[in-house]
Design a protein around this nucleic acid. Structure first.
Length: 270
DNA sequence: ACCACAACCTGGCCGC
DNA sequence: TGCGGCCAGGTTGTGG
């Protein structure tokens, strides 16, 4: 579920309760959560380490530990992280837990069990193939235009490709294309510079707006404290099939593209 | 290089 | 009530 704005919201809200805290151990009830290293090695290497900072790259959360290793978590579709007192009854679907020296726990709840956890010395081992951060200064309209020009792919699936741009998912791809008035089936190399600039601006604006609203709770995404985001009320096309376009009144259509639901306005996305 | 599709999982919803 | 089918915010691997 979580895309860049939801992961960013989670990162920001985990900093206060976690930065400076020391991890004392790791409990795991679903081994496939743990990608690397082995569970026993993971437990040994993570215990006693202090969390120095928490950051985000694409949809990955990065916990920098003293000693130089990085704990990396991907929430995939249904992952959720919370920090609670260790004596609070365990919630359903909590499969991985990091215990803390202050009597609290970082709990990784994950209904569909797609989430993944890594402990690495070199982050590139996990993040090496990611495309540019869409909110970074190096991600300019000119760069996006050049990136689009070198490919000949349908736009919507290309925007979901994390090696192309990191962090965009199904909701915000649809929203950005609608805001830029570009049809999701357009081929990337057919955009002129003005269209690339519109798409670039739309991507940045929609992501920033979503972050400012704490992410979108479409189904079961929740902030770390359990509250919902506010972005779902500001979506223009995602989840609005058959409802009138807010810009031109044409009913929003939903098609299947690359196996993913794709929402667009046939009236103003040509 | 690009695309379609299956797989990984569980739960919610809809129609019968 | 029950059951089958379909859907879901993500990613990876396979085969054409």
């Amino acid at each position: 579920m979580p895309e860049l704005p939801e992961v960013e919201t989670t990162v920001r809200e985990l900093r206060a309760p976690l930065v400076g805290q020391t991890i004392t151990g790791l409990r795991n009830h679903w081994l496939r959560h743990i990608v690397t290293p082995s569970l026993s090695s993971f437990q040994e290497r993570v215990s006693g380490r202090a969390i120095q900072s928490i950051d985000r790259r694409g949809k990955y959360l990065l916990f920098s530990l003293d000693g130089g290793e990085t704990l990396i978590i991907h929430l995939k579709m249904t992952g959720h992280l919370s920090v609670v007192p260790a004596d609070l009854p365990i919630e359903d679907h909590v499969h991985t837990v990091f215990t803390l020296a202050n009597g609290h726990e970082l709990r990784f709840r994950d209904t569909r069990k797609f989430g993944r956890v890594y402990l690495v010395r070199n982050q590139d081992q996990v993040l090496g193939n990611l495309g540019p951060e869409p909110l970074s200064t190096e991600f300019t309209a000119e760069l996006l235009h050049e990136m689009l020009r070198r490919r000949k792919r349908v736009l919507k699936p290309l925007l979901l490709d994390q090696t192309f741009i990191a962090g965009i998912g199904n909701i915000y791809a649809d929203e950005a294309l609608h805001q830029a008035k570009i049809h999701p089936l357009r081929k990337s190399n057919t955009l002129n510079i003005d269209e690339s600039k519109s798409l670039h601006a739309a991507i940045q604006e929609i992501l920033l707006l979503a972050i400012s609203r704490g992410g979108a709770t479409v189904d079961d995404y929740r902030r770390p404290d359990g509250t919902k985001g506010e972005m779902q009320a500001a979506l223009s096309v995602y989840g609005r099939e058959d409802e009138p376009c807010l810009r031109c009144g044409t009913p929003i259509e939903r098609i299947l593209l690359g196996g993913r639901s794709t929402h667009y306005c046939p009236g103003c996305q040509k």
